[in-house]
Design a protein around this nucleic acid. Structure first.
Lengths: 219, 219
DNA sequence: ATCAAGTCTGAAACTTGTTCTAGATTAGCG
DNA sequence: CGCTAATCTAGAACAAGTTTCAGACTTGAT
């Protein structure tokens, strides 16, 4: 769980760890008010009690900083979600419920969500590793909700599509082009993909290799 | 078809229309090389032979400019796609084929795609109307491929999810976090939603009023 | 043709992300 | 303890998006 945090950079001293934490805190704080635009590097530095140059040493760009902030928040959310697993009948319901729960959490801090999500989708190649970490975290949350240990490639693809939908739906909501109800419907719609791919391999602790879970689509 | 272009702002004079066109052309040109970062407002202005202030009068921000550029390109693509409709058996196949065709078109100008898509997802509320226009254009393209005139709410939701996936998959590809093959798989996966929603209300292209006629594209 | 209103130009100014530099501090080591 | 390399600080400087302004040019109506 902590393995997917930092790769293996030089281990930070205590003061450095504290600085890093202050920076992330300041970032989340500022994002919480004004959103993306309110996270100004000079202000973050000042709020964190750190020189501008130092801020840039820790996070090489504003995007890096916000993506790291998102990692941080996601990790928290994952922990929270684990405490109360979703209670749906089938995987699709559980995933939809989990995502809607996450969504409601974001609703409480729409500005923060705005800053993080905008940074995430705006990130270019130089931020790929960090964005990938966020993606893996999200995947983990969804797989958790599905209750899967060894997903098939098809299921992984469905999960990717769900992630796509999740991010993009979030954006349309944040920019005021979709209502909450619509986001809910979209999430539920995409979650139906799970049933499409899940049926054959789910309950079996199955010996044997992950048997070809063909597409038993009921049509 | 031209109705969804500009709302109804003061009708532009000829010279103004020409300026607008020069600006969009310069924007696409610059984006074609260096991508998002290479579209610098001063350079666009100079390349278009227009003062900086004028550029800002036509497009109130870089994001507006790039989203307008995307509108322009999408319109072109829609026209092109219409000439050779996809030839798949069912709606899902046709949509997937259409999107992959669009995707290959973008592959030819990855930098331009980068600029446009980044702008699109980075756009905030102030650009909502323009982004919405792009969204409607995309929806039109997908519905065209499905061959639907009067989609059900469920189908519209599926289309929205497909759009979400399309944008987000594009981003992951552009930022180097997903291969083309993966994008293809994701597109095909999400397109299965169409069959899911189509079945209950439309079991066969029976004697429906929307009888598709010219679907015999010679590939 | 002329006038008023609106538009365009060129240039400077302002904002915020990012980079750079010189000197002060800190950490690890012999 | 004293040294050296790395890190941190304060602040200037630079880059590109955005705003502003005075003056020149167009346009449309009279």
């Amino acid at each position: 769980m902590t393995a997917e945090d930092r790769p293996a950079s030089p281990p930070l001293t205590e003061r450095q760890e504290a600085r890093r934490r202050r920076i992330l805190h300041a970032s989340a704080q500022l994002a919480g008010r004004g959103g993306f635009d309110a996270v100004q590097m000079r202000e973050v530095a000042e709020a964190a009690g750190v020189a501008l140059g130092t801020l840039y040493r820790y996070f090489p760009s504003k995007i890096h900083l916000l993506v790291a902030t998102m990692q941080d928040q996601l990790q928290r959310m994952h922990t929270t979600l684990r405490k109360r697993p979703p209670a749906g009948e089938n995987a699709a319901d559980r995933v939809a419920e989990t995502l809607m729960r996450a969504f409601r959490a974001l609703q409480r801090e729409p500005q923060l969500a705005d800053a993080m999500v905008r940074a995430l989708t705006f990130a270019d190649r130089s931020v790929s590793p960090e964005v990938d970490t966020v993606s893996r975290l999200t995947t983990a949350i969804i797989l958790d909700a599905m209750g899967l240990e060894h997903p098939t490639p098809q299921q992984l693809s469905a999960v990717r599509v769900i992630e796509h939908t999740w991010h993009s739906a979030l954006i349309t909501w944040l920019s005021g082009r979709a209502s909450i109800a619509q986001v809910k419907i979209d999430i539920e719609t995409v979650c139906r993909l799970i049933d499409l791919t899940a049926s054959p391999s789910r309950p079996a602790p199955a010996a044997g290799p992950t048997a070809r879970s063909g597409r038993t689509a009921p049509v």
